[in-house]
Design a protein around this nucleic acid. Structure first.
Lengths: 381, 381
DNA sequence: GTGAAAGCGCTAACAG
DNA sequence: CTGTTAGCGCTTTCAC
């Protein structure tokens, strides 16, 4: 492939002129600029980013690392790409398949390739590579949930109030025996959601019954078992709050196996909208996260860190979730058939059919609060 | 970050010894090797891949570019990562959101960053960047479908027989009026599928009725409209063959709107298994592609090209699809509740509930046939 | 407004 | 078995 030197020779100029033409880093006479452009065209020249990175020590690349691929992360990715693209960064997408070892590999790979910053939805716990990143003040922004022991920027939905809102909704519908399927406690988000569940019960004067919460069920197959278990309690719960979208899949199957109708036999509220939610009947009441906004915010934060002070104390941005009330909680307005515009929808959260937003809109100006490392450690989201 | 020189100084050796220790490219005495390793540990040294890439002109990185993210591509990605990882390549995942311009951007980005090769599911038509890639004999392997005018390695399901198999199945079930929703003709795969549909009809002596095929509907919302249209024909089709997984979503909604029951009012066969297929009732009869195998094969091919002769004529590998007969075509065995193992399933194609495989197993040894550029152009898959 | 030249951190002859 | 050294292709001082 042609190099800047080839172009320079052909245009009869120095390599530095070629460089300046392509980067606009200093004035170049129109005559020379035209000659350079012509020569570069003829040669099919494309500046070698690898060499540039070596020289400038910045790759204009961001790593985006997620444990899994589903609608939630894809929507977040959209926000990431939009902000990154506008700021001249390319995005390297890495998918760890829920494997912390893979996560380490990808983080190392990104660091070795001199990605300028990393946006990460952690697969679980703290590990060496995270330690190294944090120690070297590598621009790193977490989203979705925090990692205990790690002080880093974070953008996430405030899970406690989100869960509270969901459970309060069920209580309002008259339910008093509400089962909860929770994700694995390695995720700080799971714990926060259980906490919101508890608070909603307490506020309604309903005693907390430990046997109605099954945790450690982040995967679909485990959540199926969790629901089978919950539904064997007597008296049987009349409502179910299920902690994430993967788990909704398993939960639905369990209910079908048991022959329980939603919402007549059990009311249902899930977490995270999923693309197939619209095809389920009844339509699902769900806590929806402002996915696109999460992506935008996280990217802005990582760029701030790259281009600003890398030693600034960690920030935490919390965004609000919305409760999309539909049929499965017995509270929805049953409307026209599901909307189909999802795949095109580039606005904040995915558009949803027959929805009635219960809580406030997702904050447009996310509340930002500073938090020192210690505080961050004590208040997982 | 520490460099090889820092390590060398600290260990009292030359940089070349450091390099050889890390690459195993020549013998190093145990004494020196230990000193190097110790020094590198103390300094937290990580070889700078950017510099290495500049020097060696190979990045050990592969680009994986897809138009969309869904279960199909994620499964393919698994195969890609496994083979690439085993061969020491990292994978850079790029998602073009169905936008050919984005595709160009990503291809350029990959080339500028010196990815060693690219695995691409094209978003549509030929464009400049593809031209440049092909002209410079850049290692490129297409999968899923070909691009007219572009001669490149290709691995794809043989779409014509796959569609034929699906439609023949419906005919066998007694249907004679079968509607088809086809993807956009910019995809060679769409055209091949329609061809298979026609052949199945012809073989059964059923006249081809143009009004029963609606094309250009690769997106969910368009396929909904397509189904509404098809179902307004009189007499109404008694069966439907729908050309890809995105379209199944829209089709299901249309049928629900019309209040038509599957398979009693309309029999249904879709293309591509999707993760939410198991939650639909009735369970869907689908043409399933050997996704994992497609990923493995494509990656092997691109690595062959990188490490072998870049000017070898283009090869085309075709893999066989399977027909998973379930309830929606009225032909299934209704079995136990849907399997939940999908997300863990790392074997060839995703495990499927209540399935009866109709055609032969996906070929274990993919048939490879050489094809010169001209022939490749004339025989899109 | 332009060019010469010194590296960025690594690898790989080449020389010992 | 080990060290010296010349680049890979670019950016960026420095000098004109």
């Amino acid at each position: 492939m042609a190099t800047a030197r080839d172009v320079a020779r052909r245009a009869g100029v120095s390599t530095s002129t070629v460089s300046h033409v392509f980067n606009g880093t200093r004035g170049v006479s129109k005559k020379l600029r035209d000659r350079v452009l012509a020569a570069s065209d003829e040669l099919g020249f494309e500046p070698n980013i690898v060499a540039r990175t070596l020289k400038t020590n910045q790759s204009r690349t961001l790593g985006f690392v997620v444990p899994d691929v589903n609608a939630f992360y894809i929507d977040v990715l959209r926000g990431v790409e939009d902000v990154a693209g506008a700021a001249g960064y390319a995005v390297m997408f890495c998918h760890t398949h829920d494997d912390p070892t893979q996560e380490q590999n990808y983080l190392r790979l990104l660091r070795a390739r001199r990605a300028d910053g990393i946006i990460l939805s952690p697969a679980g716990t703290y590990h060496d590579e995270l330690d190294r990143l944090s120690r070297s003040a590598y621009p790193l922004v977490l989203f979705d949930c925090s990692v205990p022991g790690l002080s880093a920027d974070l953008v996430a939905v405030d899970n406690e109030p989100a869960a509270h809102m969901a459970v309060a909704h069920l209580i309002e519908k008259g339910h008093r025996r509400i089962g909860m399927v929770s994700g694995d406690y390695v995720f700080s988000s799971s714990e926060r959601r259980v906490r919101g569940y508890r608070r909603a019960l307490e506020e309604a004067g309903i005693p907390f019954d430990e046997s109605l919460v099954v945790s450690g069920a982040s995967r679909a197959d485990l959540s199926r078992r969790a629901v089978l278990e919950l539904m064997s309690r007597s008296p049987r719960p009349t409502a179910l709050f299920v902690g994430n979208n993967q788990m909704t899949a398993g939960a639905m199957i369990a209910l079908q196996e048991l022959g329980l109708a939603v919402p007549d036999d059990v009311a249902y509220v899930g977490f995270d909208d999923v693309d197939w939610a619209s095809f389920l009947r009844p339509q699902m009441t769900m806590v929806a996260q402002p996915t696109y906004e999460i992506g935008r915010t996280a990217t802005q934060m990582v760029i701030d860190r790259i281009e600003g002070d890398p030693d600034r104390p960690a920030r935490r941005v919390s965004l609000e979730a919305k409760l999309m009330v539909r049929e499965s909680s017995g509270g929805g307005v049953s409307l026209a058939p599901a909307s189909l515009a999802q795949t095109q929808d580039r606005t904040s959260s995915r558009r949803l059919p027959s929805e009635r937003v219960v809580l406030a809109e997702a904050a447009r100006r996310p509340r930002v609060r500073a938090a020192g490392p210690v505080r961050a450690r004590q208040q997982p989201m």
